[in-house]
Design a binder for these strands. Structure first.
Lengths: 353, 353
DNA sequence: TTGAAAGCGCTAACAC
DNA sequence: GTGTTAGCGCTTTCAA
């Protein structure tokens, strides 16, 4: 009834007091190192029982301060809306769940300053490792990620996923086979009879997009088709109300009619383009479209889909990071995961939610 | 060249030493309390400069241990794939970004034990607050969330979002107007000429679904239509390969033909149903569908959409939580946010990604 | 105005 | 086998 505000949280000290032994012994036993330090079975037993009875849980912050470890992983995404975020996250979670790590997540909302700040914040909060999906601003060719300097001098292990910043040659990363996937998609379009194949993309100077464009070119050449200045359509704006795909398609007549096949490097752009073309052209004039990204469940777009290994990318990134955290070996690990191409009408497992 | 391993991290102590004053003074000044403690302007100036020069950053864990605050918010989602997660997250982030909080996120993957564990873990990690989107297992009518006990005895403020567990009457929560939205959607179907309106839903005993079902009934009665045992179709499985919508639609002929309007309580289910019905029936026999959830960009489903205020729900939940964290007032805050109904063919802002 | 010192609760090197 | 003790780096009360 008096100032019993504090239910006197059970601490190591409390336990030690109750048992009449020292904090050290208790700590050792509770960590499972009892045998290694040859603490008598009897003592161990008593400690365990008492801890159980008192519902002792070691204070996280105190331990973290002492060990400088937080069992927390930081993850930086460019944006929440990218559908691959949830898939990657699933993969990442599945790995870290086992080891009792928590995930601290932040998105940069397409703003490099925020991205920078978020990375700084995570390092400040002492995450044990970092998974980074870098954001690359559109149409700035020589953009340098300012956080690269920060990262270069941190002890905290990190791994890039999906796309790379500049100079990532000797760092850890997991990406997908953008080049090969684009190449194959072009071949598939060719097999379907397309002879005037174009490629449409946002003009992002990031590795994944670059690789897709290169893969496209290689595919075109591999099929013996000509490559012209009109083969690749680069969009400089993501804003639908300005000089982007809508405007281009409406103004440039030939753009609407000169292709019988189109490789589109991102899903959203593909859906929009498909939507516009279907509106603008008679059905038999709409080019065959191949695109990166999976269609939403239960919507048949009639496009060739390049399915990216997002869940696996998450798993791989998490595993690499865990390895770097646990082992002192800092030699870079780099992986390229395979995509899968789903042909038009090919059976795509159905999901329900 | 020698054992200079440690670049001797700058600490309060270091600074104090360099300046020839005490830690206290430095700490006070750096926290901005210099004036309040009437520390001389000159000293303050010196401290600030020195801290700047040395690039001093207070150690997060040490401060957290001392203050028992982590500037971290825990968020529990049932699953990453629910599209509303990314929208809510956007809202939540927008609020906490300002105040320099980090977000620790975990998903329970439709498993109540994991959900429980995750909450426990977040409390253990000393999050300053918790946003919970509870998972409710399908078809278990009397399910009790075991974490309610845990929460009842924690000091950590928390707020429920989107749906409520049992006994949430006196807790903080933000939900949406499921009842009214369902009711209105039914009226809209009626206005469109539907006279045999059914409702299809997963059989989840959670507040949001219950409210939608009640809203449906109320709407039906409001329109003067009869309510029969066949008005509501409850599905007990989410597994598409078992006795769920697919099976029901294929086996039960009348199910396919007895409705001219359908209210469906979740987006994924609606898309699947629409897909199946369009396949099974001639176009003029497919019932008009109203459903919760927004269609994917650039896909016209021809359904009435009930757009839920997900971003705002995130914002509201975050604000409430922040308020509870900063103020000692613990009286519950509860809000119901409005949904918006988009009629078939109504212009829906287009996005590009 | 400023400083000393007692925490916060745990870890780990070292002593007995 | 078990205990002592010095950190980890910051906050905060109290005294000067």
């Amino acid at each position: 009834m008096t100032n019993q505000k504090k239910p006197t949280k059970t601490t190591l000290q409390t336990l030690a007091g109750k048992l009449g032994i020292s904090k050290t012994t208790v700590s050792l036993v509770l960590k499972g190192d009892g045998d290694r330090y040859r603490i008598s079975r009897k003592t161990q037993q008593r400690v365990l029982e008492c801890a159980e009875k008192e519902g002792f849980v070691p204070d996280f912050l105190a331990r973290a301060l002492a060990t400088n470890k937080t069992a927390t992983i930081g993850i930086i995404f460019p944006d929440v809306h990218e559908s691959f975020m949830s898939e990657m996250l699933k993969g990442i979670e599945s790995v870290f769940y086992e080891s009792d790590y928590s995930l601290m997540i932040s998105t940069s909302g397409f703003d490099t300053e925020i991205e920078d700040r978020n990375i700084r914040q995570m390092l400040h909060k002492k995450v044990d490792g970092l998974i980074l999906v870098p954001y690359v601003p559109i149409a700035r060719n020589n953009y340098k990620h300012s956080y690269m300097k920060l990262l270069s001098k941190t002890d905290c292990p990190f791994v890039f996923a999906d796309r790379l910043p500049e100079n990532a040659g000797s760092l850890n990363w997991i990406i997908q086979d953008d080049f090969e996937a684009a190449e194959k998609a072009v071949c598939l379009l060719f097999e379907k009879g397309c002879r005037s194949i174009g490629c449409m993309s946002f003009n992002l100077s990031t590795s994944s997009i670059n690789n897709r464009l290169e893969g496209f070119k290689s595919g075109i050449e591999g099929c013996g088709l000509p490559l012209s200045s009109r083969s690749i359509i680069l969009l400089d704006r993501q804003d639908p109300h300005s000089d982007d795909i809508t405007g281009r398609l409406l103004r440039d007549n030939s753009l609407r009619t000169e292709y019988d096949g189109l490789l589109i490097t991102t899903g959203g752009l593909a859906h929009k383009t498909g939507y516009l073309l279907r509106k603008a052209l008679p059905a038999d004039k709409v080019p065959v479209i191949a695109k990166f990204g999976r269609d939403p469940d239960y919507f048949d777009t009639g496009m060739i889909q390049i399915i990216q290994p997002n869940v696996n990318m998450g798993i791989a990134a998490a595993r690499v990071l865990l390895d770097k955290i646990l082992n002192r070996d800092r030699s870079p690990i780099q992986k390229i995961l395979k995509s899968r191409i789903i042909d038009i009408g090919e059976k795509n497992e159905e999901k329900c939610n």
